[in-house]
Amino acid sequence: MGSIPTLPGLESRMIQTPRIQMHVLMGGPKDGIPVLLVHGNASSSTYWEETMLALPPSFRAIAPDLRGYGDTEDKLVDATRGCMDWVDDLLGLMDVLGLQKFHVAGHSLGGSVVWAMLAAHPERVLSATVICPGSPFGFGGTKGLEGTPCAPDYAGSGGGIVNPEFARLMAEKYRGSEYPASPRTVMNSFYWKPPFKHPREEELLSGLLSERIGPDKYPGDFEPSPHWPGVAPGKFGPANAISPKYIGDSVERMLTATPKPPILWVRGSDDQIVSDFSLFNMGTLGKMGAVPGWPGDEVHPPQPMVGQTRYVLERYAANGGYFREEVIADTGHSPHMEKPEVFDPIFHAHLKAASS
């Protein structure tokens, strides 16, 4: 059983896979069409519960805690593999469950995991849904629609750009809201669009606080850099795993891979975490004057995260794939949780179309 209470109708299990022991939430009929749900950073499987319960009766929901999060066994994330530690963990889980093909949905960092899965093993995927995903080129350190590095060492991405106060308070399991960087304040300010408050705020905060903290976990290690803002990615932990330094040829492999599962891309109209002017991006913070010494738009502009995603998906479609972009009005970084009455019908239609 997991450490966070779950909603009625869901099953909490520990499952031993060849790579790692995973905590997994499950719902729906055991012979249903599988839907693998991949949570984001500073969260856990708890963030999927309402989505799981809303699935049509022909689907089986499977929401694991990723390596580094929740009640899954504590093992390091080798960031030099990009998101592949997570992809391999998830495929190992589905193998143990005897599920060769499945739908996959990823939120935020989970969307970055989905990009990697589509590049490495698209033959396993019936359809993909990405909700406010990180750019396919990685989070931070790039400019332009084609994901050009701002610096040769990818300065401005990785573990060094995480707010250390946020990580410190996470490590202390701090549940208050006195500080701007307190986990509860960050969740209610950025995970959704204020003044929205989720009715299961305490359980979701517990999910946020479940992430493993440390120099080789979150926020991760980093290297000093001669390039602004002075830090480059290290080799361990989630923040480094989504750095463009370790994406490699993942985008090109996704664009040339066969088959090409249909992709649904959903984003919130007012997302401040993944946007073309993200408040979690060094280029944006430099331009705003919040990080000193900004070298200007020519060298390190705000990363056009949404523009990069659309650029890649349009190339995906031009290469024989299919994608649909949906923007959910008046929502932030978690539109599936803020407006499930809008998200669920779109998501269910995508699953049914790809299952038929």
Rank of each mutant, 00 (worst) to 15 (best):
G70A: 10
D71N: 11
D71Y: 07
T72L: 14
T72Y: 12
K75E: 12
K75L: 14
K75N: 09
V77L: 12
T80M: 09
T80K: 14
R81K: 15
R81I: 00
G82I: 06
M84R: 15
D85M: 03
D85E: 08
W86D: 02
W86H: 13
W86Y: 09
V87L: 00
D89K: 01
D89N: 02
D89E: 05
L90W: 04
L90P: 08
L90F: 04
L91M: 11
L91W: 07
G92R: 02
G92Q: 01
L93Y: 05
L93I: 07
M94I: 03
D95A: 13
D95R: 11
D95H: 05
V96W: 06
L97V: 03
L97Q: 04
L99Y: 03
Q100P: 00
K101A: 07
F102D: 02
F102W: 13
H103N: 11
V104R: 04
A105N: 02
G106A: 12
G106N: 08
G106S: 14
H107G: 01
S108W: 07
G110N: 10
G110V: 05
S112W: 14
S112Q: 13
V113H: 02
V113C: 09
V113W: 01
V114K: 10
V114C: 13
W115M: 06
A116R: 15
M117R: 10
A119V: 05
A120T: 14
H121C: 15
V125F: 00
L126P: 01
L126K: 15
L126Q: 14
S127D: 07
A128W: 06
A128H: 06
T129S: 15
T129P: 02
V130R: 06
V130Q: 13
V130N: 01
G134D: 14
S135I: 08
P136L: 08
P136I: 06
G140Y: 08
G140S: 11
G140H: 14
G141W: 13
T142F: 03
G144I: 03
L145V: 10
L145S: 13
E146K: 15
E146R: 15
E146P: 00
G147D: 04
G147A: 11
G147N: 12
P149R: 10
C150L: 05
C150G: 02
A151M: 02
P152F: 08
P152W: 08
P152R: 06
D153I: 05
Y154T: 03
A155F: 05
A155V: 06
S157K: 11
G158K: 03
G158A: 05
G158Q: 05
G160S: 10
G160R: 04
G160D: 04
N163P: 01
E165W: 06
